[in-house]
Design a protein around this nucleic acid. Structure first.
Length: 541
DNA sequence: CGCATTTGACCGGCGC
DNA sequence: GCGCCGGTCAAATGCG
C-alpha cells in the first residue's frame, strides 16, 4: 500500500470517475467514495498514461485486441502478449518488439499492482466504513459508561444524596445537569434512530419540574396532553408528514382522534436541540443543507434578530434551525438545530447532521441511561469533541433539552472566517485532534481545513440517524464547492503520508484512548468546570 | 416569472 | 384573564 501512495506525487491531473483505460483492454471503473480512492485514482491514471503514449498507436490497437481480459493471471498475461507481439510486430520491428515485450511485462505487473491496490483500497474502505460506523456507537456507549462512573464517583466521594444533588442542579454552568433535564428520558428504551426526532421532551421537562411534579395524565400538562396530544403531536416530526416540527402552531392540524397520531406521538416522546456556537462573519454557517428562511424575530435579551430556517432539501423535511448572533460577542453565531432529516444528506451535510444527531442522541441517551443521575456536561463535551478545547453544554433553563457545542474556543488561529465567506463545515471522517502524539500530516491537514474540527462523527451513523431509510446521495460538488477543496486538501494530506494504515490505526487507538482520557479529564474537570463557557441559545428565553 | 426573503399578523404556551 | 414571548404563517416585496 505504501507504494501506491508514495509514488503519486508526481502525477498527472486526475481523471473523472469511471475512467476507461483502453490500453489495458478492459474498463477500469474507478469510483472514489473516499479520499484515498480519489488519490489512488490519480496514481492509476498516471501509470496508464505513461504507457499509452509510448507504443505506436497501431501496435497498441493490436495488443488490445489480443490481450486477455482476465488480468488476474498476472504475469501469465505476459506470455500471451508476447506471442501477440511477435505476430504483430516481427516484421522488421525487432527492437520495437523488445520494447513492447518489456512494456507488456510492465503492463502486466501494473495490472497486478492495480489489482492489489484495488483490493487494498477495498479493504481500507471497508475498514474505514467499519471504524466510522462503530465510532459513534462507541461514543454512545462510552458516554453511558462514563456517566455511570461519574455518578458512582460523585456519590462515593461526596456522600451526597442524589436528590440533594438534583436540587442543586439548576445552574447551567455548574457542571451538573439539572434534574429537569435528567428526567427527560422515558423509562422505556429508546432507539438511537428515534432519539433525535423524538419530540416533546420539553413537555416532559416541564412536567418534571419541582413545582409541577405531575405525571402526564395529571394536571395542566396532562390536560394539555390529553387535549388531542397537542404538544406531542405538534412537535411530531414524522418523516412522511408535513407537520411542522418546531412550534406549536401546527397543533391544530393534528387530528387528536387519529390513532396513528397518538401512536406516533408516543414513539417520539422526546426532542432535543443542538446548538452550535461558532465564530463566523457570515450570516449563516454553511452546513451542507439547503435552508429557507421563514421568519425572523427579535428575541428577548438579544439585540440581534433570530432567524428561522427550515430545511428545503426535501419536501416536508421537519428540520428547523435558528440562527442568532451572540449578544455578548457578535462574531459568534449560534445555530440551533432541531429535528431529523427525512431525506438523504449530501456528504457535506453529514458533518453537521451527524454531530447534531450524535449530540442530541448522547444528550437523550444520557438522560435515559440514568434514572436520576447526574450527567456532567464535560462528559458530553469530551465525547462529542474528544481532545478538543471545544465543549458541549447542557442547558438547564432552556425549555427544551439543549446541548450547546461551543466551537469558539478552537485554538486554531484560522478559525476566524474571512468576512463575507460562509462558514463551511467540511466533511471529515477522521479526528485530527485524536491522532494525539501521532500528529500526522493528515491530522494536521484535516484539522487546518476545519473549523468544526470537532464535528467528525460517522457518516454512516449520521445517515442512519438523520436519514434512516434513505440511500446515501452522491456527492454534489456543485452545491458545496468548498467540499471539493476540503477533500482535495485531505487527499493531499493523505498523499504526504506514507502509511495511511498506520495513521488509521493510530486514529482508532486514539479514539479509544481519547475516550478513556476523556473520562479522566472529565473527572478532573468535574470540579473545575466553572470557567467553561456555558451558553444555550434558549437559556435566556 | 419563479423563487427566496421580508415582515407584520397570528397563535399557543406560560407566568403573573 | 391578561400580557409577554417564542414560533410560524402568509402576503408583500425583492431579485435573478
Amino acid at each position: 500500500m505504501d507504494k501506491g501512495w508514495v509514488s503519486s506525487q508526481s502525477l498527472l491531473p486526475p481523471t473523472p470517475d469511471n475512467t476507461m483505460f483502453p490500453l489495458l483492454g478492459f474498463p477500469v471503473k474507478l469510483s472514489r467514495p473516499t479520499m484515498e480512492l480519489h488519490h489512488d485514482n490519480r496514481k492509476l491514471v498516471a501509470e496508464v498514461d505513461f504507457f499509452s503514449h509510448t507504443p505506436p498507436p497501431n501496435i497498441v490497437k493490436k495488443e488490445l485486441d489480443q490481450t486477455p481480459l482476465h488480468i488476474n493471471t498476472g504475469l501469465q498475461l505476459l506470455t500471451a502478449n508476447t506471442r501477440s507481439d511477435q505476430s504483430t510486430v516481427d516484421d522488421g520491428l525487432s527492437s520495437d518488439a523488445e520494447d513492447k515485450r518489456a512494456k507488456t511485462t510492465e503492463l502486466a505487473q501494473l495490472q497486478v499492482e492495480l489489482q492489489r491496490m484495488n483490493a487494498e483500497n477495498k479493504k481500507l474502505k471497508e475498514m474505514l466504513s467499519h471504524v466510522t460506523g462503530n465510532y459513534t456507537a462507541l461514543q454512545m456507549h462510552l458516554v453511558t459508561l462514563m456517566q455511570q462512573n461519574q455518578q458512582r464517583t460523585e456519590s462515593t466521594e461526596n456522600g451526597v444524596a442524589q436528590g440533594k444533588v438534583e436540587d442543586k442542579n439548576h445552574g447551567v454552568g455548574g457542571g451538573k445537569v439539572p434534574r429537569q433535564f435528567l428526567d427527560i428520558g422515558p423509562s422505556g428504551t429508546a432507539e438511537v434512530d428515534d432519539q433525535v426526532s423524538d419530540s416533546s421532551s420539553d413537555e416532559r421537562t416541564r412536567s418534571s419540574t419541582p413545582q409541577d411534579n405531575n405525571t402526564e395524565a395529571g394536571t395542566r400538562d396532562g390536560a394539555r396532553n390529553n387535549n388531542g396530544n397537542k404538544s406531542e403531536l405538534g412537535r411530531e416530526e414524522s418523516p412522511d408528514s408535513e407537520s411542522q416540527g418546531w412550534g406549536p402552531n401546527k397543533l391544530q392540524k393534528v387530528n387528536p382522534s387519529n390513532p396513528m397520531d397518538q401512536s406516533t406521538a408516543e414513539a417520539t416522546m422526546r426532542k432535543a436541540r443542538v446548538s452550535v456556537r461558532a465564530r463566523s462573519e457570515a450570516p449563516m454557517i454553511s452546513d451542507g443543507c439547503q435552508w429557507r428562511k421563514y421568519g425572523q424575530k427579535m428575541a428577548k435579551g438579544n439585540p440581534c434578530p433570530r432567524a428561522y430556517y427550515r430545511c428545503t432539501m426535501a419536501v416536508g423535511c421537519p428540520v428547523r434551525k435558528q440562527v442568532q448572533r451572540c449578544a455578548d460577542d457578535r462574531t459568534i453565531l449560534v445555530t440551533t438545530y432541531e429535528g431529523t432529516h427525512n431525506h438523504p444528506l449530501p456528504p457535506a451535510a453529514m458533518a453537521m447532521a451527524s454531530t447534531t444527531a450524535a449530540a442530541a442522541t448522547m444528550l437523550l441517551s444520557g438522560s435515559m441511561s440514568s434514572a436520576d443521575g447526574v450527567m456532567n456536561p464535560n462528559l458530553l463535551a469530551r465525547a462529542i469533541l474528544p481532545c478538543s478545547t471545544s465543549m458541549a453544554t447542557l442547558s438547564a433553563s432552556a425549555p427544551f433539552p439543549t446541548v450547546t457545542l461551543d466551537l469558539t474556543h478552537n485554538p486554531n488561529p484560522l478559525q476566524f472566517q474571512r468576512p463575507g465567506a460562509p462558514f463551511q463545515v467540511p466533511f471529515l471522517q477522521a479526528q485530527p485532534q485524536n491522532f494525539g502524539s501521532g500528529a500526522t500530516p493528515i491530522a494536521q491537514a484535516l484539522y487546518n481545513q476545519s473549523k468544526f474540527s470537532g464535528l467528525q462523527l460517522s457518516q454512516d451513523v449520521g445517515s442512519s440517524q438523520l436519514a434512516p431509510q434513505a440511500p446515501r446521495p452522491p456527492l454534489q460538488p456543485s452545491q458545496h464547492p468548498s467540499l471539493a477543496d476540503t477533500v482535495s486538501a485531505a487527499a493531499s494530506a493523505i498523499t504526504s503520508d506514507p502509511n495511511f494504515t498506520a495513521v488509521l490505526a493510530a486514529a482508532i487507538s486514539s479514539i479509544i484512548g481519547g475516550a478513556h482520557n476523556s473520562n479522566n479529564n472529565n473527572n478532573n474537570n468535574s470540579n473545575n468546570n466553572t470557567s467553561r463557557t456555558t451558553i444555550s441559545s434558549f437559556s435566556g428565553n
